[in-house]
Simulated scan of single mutants.
Amino acid sequence: MAQIGVERAGDADVVAQITRRAFDRRNGEEVEMIARIRAAPKFILALPKFILALSLVAEVGGRPVGHLLISRDKLRLEGGQPTDQEGLMLGPISVLPDAQRRGVGSRLMRRGLDTAASRPELVVVLIGHPEYYPRFGFRPAREFGLHPDWDAAMVYPLWPDLSAYRELHLPEQSVCRCNAWRKPLQADHSQPL
C-alpha cells in the first residue's frame, strides 16, 4: 500500500522524474507547470506553512511512485484580471506507469483533498478527465457558474455556498492547462490516469 507524505526538501528532481514518466506523451508540459509554480514568489513565501503541506509524494516500499501538487491562485474576471477570490488548484497529479491502477492516485487525491479542507479557500479546481474525478467529489465548474464551460474544468467545493465565485474564471494556470488538455480529452478518454 502506498504511503503518502509531505514532499521533503530535495524531492524536486524525483517529482520531476515521476511527472515526466507519468505524462511521457505530453512533452514535459506538467514538469514545466510544476517548475513555474515552484518559481512563483507566493510559493517561496508560503513554503514553510502552505505548499509543503499540499505537495505530496506517494511511496511504495520506500520508492517514490507518485506526486500531487495543490497550489493557490486568484480566480479571474472575464478579461483575465485577478480578483480577491482565491482558490486552490489541484494538479498535476502523477503516478509512475508501473504503479498506476493500484490506488496510488486515489490515495494522493484523498490526502490532498483532506488537507485542502483545512484551508480557508472555498474551492479546489482542476482540469482533467470528467469521467474520473467526480468519484472524489469534483463537479463541472459550470454547475457553480464558473468558467470556462468545458467538461474538463471541475470544482471540488470546500464550502456549501460558492455564490461569491459565480461568473468568475478559473485561475490563469488552470486555464493554460485546460487549453492543453481540452483537445486530448475531447479526442480520447481512454488514456491511463
Rank of each mutant, 00 (worst) to 15 (best):
A2E: 03
E7N: 03
E7S: 13
E7D: 02
G10D: 13
D11T: 10
A16V: 02
I18H: 07
R21A: 15
R21N: 07
R21M: 13
R25H: 07
R25F: 11
E29S: 10
V31N: 07
I37G: 08
K42I: 06
F43C: 05
F43R: 09
L45D: 11
P48K: 01
L52M: 05
S55A: 13
G61S: 06
R63W: 03
R63A: 10
P64K: 09
H67N: 12
I70F: 08
S71E: 01
R72P: 03
R72A: 06
D73Y: 10
R76F: 07
Q81M: 12
T83V: 13
D84G: 13
Q85V: 12
Q85L: 14
E86W: 04
E86H: 14
G87K: 01
L88D: 11
M89P: 00
P92C: 11
L96Y: 00
L96K: 04
G103F: 11
S106R: 11
R107V: 06
R107Q: 15
L108K: 06
G112F: 03
E121P: 10
E121T: 12
L122G: 07
V125L: 14
V125Q: 09
L126V: 02
L126M: 14
H129V: 00
P130Y: 11
F136K: 06
G137H: 05
G137P: 07
F138A: 08
F138V: 03
F138C: 06
R139A: 15
R142I: 13
E143N: 14
G145D: 13
L146W: 02
L146S: 08
H147I: 00
D149C: 03
W150D: 14
W150H: 10
V155C: 08
P157Q: 01
L158S: 08
H169Y: 13
H169E: 10
H169Q: 05
Q173S: 12
Q173K: 09
R177T: 02
R177Q: 13
C178M: 11
C178T: 07
A180S: 10
W181M: 11
Q186G: 15
Q191R: 13
L193M: 07
L193D: 01
